[in-house]
Design a protein around this nucleic acid. Sequence first.
DNA 1: ATCCTATCTTGTCGGTGTCAGGATAAGATA
DNA 2: TATCTTATCCTGACACCGACAAGATAGGAT
Lengths: 191, 191
Amino acid sequence: MTDKPYHHGDLRHALLTAAEAELAAHGIEAFSLRQVAKRAGVSHAAPAHHFGDANGLLTALAAEGFRQFLASQATREAQAAPEPRAQLIAAGLGYVDFALSRPTLFKLLFGSARPDYADPDLYREAFAAYRHLADQVHAAGGGSQVDVAAVWAIAHGMADLLAAGRLREIAALPPAARDAAIVDIIGRALP
Amino acid sequence: MTDKPYHHGDLRHALLTAAEAELAAHGIEAFSLRQVAKRAGVSHAAPAHHFGDANGLLTALAAEGFRQFLASQATREAQAAPEPRAQLIAAGLGYVDFALSRPTLFKLLFGSARPDYADPDLYREAFAAYRHLADQVHAAGGGSQVDVAAVWAIAHGMADLLAAGRLREIAALPPAARDAAIVDIIGRALP
DNA sequence: ATCCTATCTTGTCGGTGTCAGGATAAGATA
DNA sequence: TATCTTATCCTGACACCGACAAGATAGGAT
């Protein structure tokens, strides 16, 4: 039993992990900085040194979330055919996967005003996610801003509604049928 | 100058109005029951009698929000051709109109865990909104749950992204061009 | 005229974010 | 090795918040 050392060692990382767990457990609207500190076994004011304030922690967590968001898309893309359109559809599936496997983190990224997008790290990651989508749409033959908006809207709409517990009929399908429905729907955005 | 009477007269309505104003001013994540009470010129505990707790107030506000949501769609439908498909597209435009004109209220309806959907009034209004959409999809020739999901997802995705300040290129278009883009996009959901 | 009930206020409690100041430890310098 | 500097973490305090309890006031029924 090591008495807890005064210095944690990797508190920043531990706080991010604790914050994500708290978020998943109690939802973003009940997020509490003191509960995060308690979960990490540290005093209530310890997070301030690493993140400034509560929004700073959520901003850092959102940046990390965008990295996981792109990784979720990459996983699906690696399993799909290399043609641009198949890759685009796969990215859409990864979009939905992320929203369903980490719903509160998804809401932090897309439905919360607390992350500060003036933060360079977060801005860069969010922009990278947008760029990835736009590149795929262009590669798949979409030429206009309207095409990008259509694909983004339909993927985001599916993800957001499913993460919010709506569209129960779709969510309740067996995985293969569910994926097929999502593929069908996303494909409509680029006729 | 009438000294404020001990009894307000229509405090319930005044609190809902004040709550919507507070929501629009400071966002849902900074929502404060005491600020709502102060805005209505009433003590901090006065809302409890009418709404129980803060979530009760937000639940009542969400129910009212769904009525406005359907009204926003009805406005667009009244200006559109009577064919089912035109009516469906018009409803989609009204969906987006609502999200852009009342973004925080929109987030309360579709992106918040605070309203309690076990409340009969809120459940009824939310279900009416869903039913309206499903009926229109069926009237326009959509036969499956997937068709309903596709239309809902694309309209909701456009609305949510625009309300969150994303899709700036679309939001920045002049009204007529913006509407045309939205019509184009929504139409893709039902080929 | 009286009682009953709905309405609203005041006061209090535990919890929260943020700030100020102090304690501790790690690393650099000598 | 001894001291200085800096990063890290803690304690304590303040104002604000949601919720609850108890009391004050007024409207309406009897």
